[in-house]
Design a protein around this nucleic acid. Structure first.
Lengths: 375, 375
DNA sequence: TTGTACGCGTTATCAC
DNA sequence: GTGATAACGCGTACAA
């Protein structure tokens, strides 16, 4: 079954033409006579020939694909169990002869797909990227990897342009690799590296949010939750402070709690403040993913949100609609960000001259229950 | 900036070694002396060299990547507006010099990310595929395309194995292309084409659902909504009939309504029955995506669900949790299906001898409000 | 341990 | 309109 894949030579031989003709039949249909074209195409289909993208990419100098690389900021939840083994015994009522049957496993489908785990910030951006590429017939190369230079490089070798979700280790790694192709960095402040940027208007969004809390709710005691190591969070914190100052409200010099996603989500500082009775009236979290577990924590501790303390997020992921109370947040236009990145890549691989672009996308305040607005 | 991408020759020249040594430095680090290796690696990093995946794939005969191809069954919603143009004027409060600012646009972010549009069946399967590939350090090639043979072929040339979401046109197209690599077909009944299969236990799930409706709710009048052109739907309908027959309930010979996703979602037959007052007590939909708009329709018509008519779905997508009433359905283990496909591909590219596998994965009945169970 | 030379499957540039 | 043939960049026997 898995014979060698047919090549142009195979087709050429059986069609009694040269390999050039075979190639033309596919790429320049009007340069050869209709009859030979039909014959060649027929043979090709018959023997299951399809051009090798590797060879084509090598010859043409470009692959046609766009890449999306994640410096592991999306934390793979520990797999508690062995992945499904398809070669297992045929249990259950397997109707297909020779089929293996894998029984339902609650653990394998966390809580019937936990919205806290799946459609996250990156997933929605990725989707936008995919949609735009799809609309333009561009294949997408998805890759991920941590610190090592090679992981980026490896995927970079397969594509004509690369969009990157930066992680903590991204900065140093990217600095080493001076990638010779168009690059878009998501959620990274402008810099001198010549790469494009696509990011949300963190400052504007945070300003709207804080203004809402202060002006509409009359809150004058606010704390920030989030680590400043993340560039987006840093921008949000800065805007948090500036807005408070502008509104004449005391602004903290630093975050109340710098719990970081995936590392320690202990909220130790929050808990400490809770015990000490020094919790601010509102906790402004740097992201939804930081805010949602905090809601759990407060629920477990008997602290009522928003009555005892107001909690807000940032990003606008799905899970924020389902939490109790639902989460007041700032929505990033994630799909648009993904689309923008893809277009940037396609444009600049067409005209490599262009200056590196920095695109900020506007955000939107989404008022829900956790600030005390909705029921 | 975008000079030619450096090659092994560039590195070799500057490092005063041969290209073989450069290659070894990357692929067989222990075959060469530490000093030369360091020197080579240093130069490589310095000039921004990265191996070309095209050339490597060509030389090695395999690319290392796995593919996921969608025959456009995921319907791209028509883009009502022009995609975001990053080169737009710098409006708003753009803090970055030279940056473009794209204001928030409600239309560009449908209803703050509509769960009806995004995490669908295919998205969750894709996610499983991604997770498994990521865990094994395998890049993923995402592609999509309709009828034409070339679209599958094109992506097929880039990967060592291909998982496929079949669409209406898939069968004929795939028959023409006898792809010479491991292939996994999702949600496709077993066949003689030598491809692997990964699908849900449609029959078991439907049996559970129908039994619940008949036994627990005492319903004896049921109709099926869904077109039999879709293989999954066909299996579900068959099980629907068989279960009813087994339970001694009259089973319809054919679906009440064969609205098909993306084509006409008119539910003409349902509406007709509604007008005529001949609506069955329960409408069993072939999928959630078929059931949810039906809920809308009934709401608009003043028909109460589940009081006047019971509606159920199949798949267990997110949106079914958010609808009013929430949707009783059968959950497919989509992440597990994606993971299984990836493993199948990796295993069979290692040992091409293996028989084509058929893996059925168990489903789970999810009882919610639309059948009258939950409040 | 390192260098030489060939092959991988296409595309593209020439001749014919 | 069609056929030789030279790149394309890398892996790898084989030789040194």
């Amino acid at each position: 079954m898995t014979a060698r894949r047919p090549t142009v030579y195979d087709v050429a031989e059986r069609a009694k033409v040269s390999i050039a003709t075979v190639s033309f039949a596919f790429t320049r249909p009007d340069q050869i006579s209709a009859t030979t074209r039909e014959r060649v195409l027929g043979i090709a289909r018959e023997i299951g020939y399809m051009p090798s993208a590797s060879a084509r990419g090598l010859a043409r100098g470009k692959t046609g694909a766009l890449g999306l690389h994640s410096f592991d900021l999306l934390i793979e939840r520990p797999q508690t169990r062995e992945p499904v083994d398809p070669v297992g015994e045929a249990g259950g009522a397997a109707p297909d002869p020779g089929a293996s049957f894998v029984p339902w496993d609650d653990a394998g489908d966390e809580f019937l797909a936990d919205p806290r785990a799946f459609p996250l910030y990156v997933d929605e951006v990725q989707r936008g990227f995919e949609l735009e590429c799809r609309a333009n017939g561009r294949p997408i190369m998805l890759s991920s990897g941590s610190g090592t230079t090679t992981s980026v490089a490896e995927s970079a070798g397969r594509v004509d342009g690369l969009a990157i979700f930066p992680g903590p280790s991204a900065a140093t790694t990217l600095a080493q690799v001076s990638l010779k192709m168009p690059i878009v960095l998501f959620s990274t402040p402008p810099g001198e590296d010549g790469h494009h940027r696509v990011l949300a208007d963190n400052a504007g969004g945070m300003r709207e949010l804080v203004t809402h809390l202060v002006t509409d709710h009359g809150i004058t005691s606010l704390g920030f939750v989030g680590a400043l190591r993340v560039a987006d969070y840093r921008e949000r914190f800065e805007a948090f402070r500036e807005t408070l100052t502008d509104l004449g409200v005391a602004a903290p010099d630093e975050p109340l709690d710098d719990s970081l996603l995936g590392e320690d989500l202990g909220y130790t500082a929050v808990i400490e403040a809770l015990r000490a009775g020094t919790l601010p009236r509102a906790l402004v979290c740097a992201s939804d993913q930081l805010a949602l577990p905090l809601l759990d924590l407060f629920a477990a501790e008997g602290v009522r949100v928003p009555d005892d303390v107001v909690v807000t997020g940032f990003d606008g992921i799905f899970a924020g609609r389902l939490s109790t109370p639902s989460l007041t947040t700032v929505r990033q236009p994630m799909e648009a960000m993904g689309r923008t990145a893809a277009r940037l890549l396609m444009d600049s691989s067409r005209s490599p001259s262009a200056e590196p672009a920095v695109v900020r996308l506007g955000t939107k305040l989404v008022v829900r229950a956790s600030c005390g607005c909705a029921a």
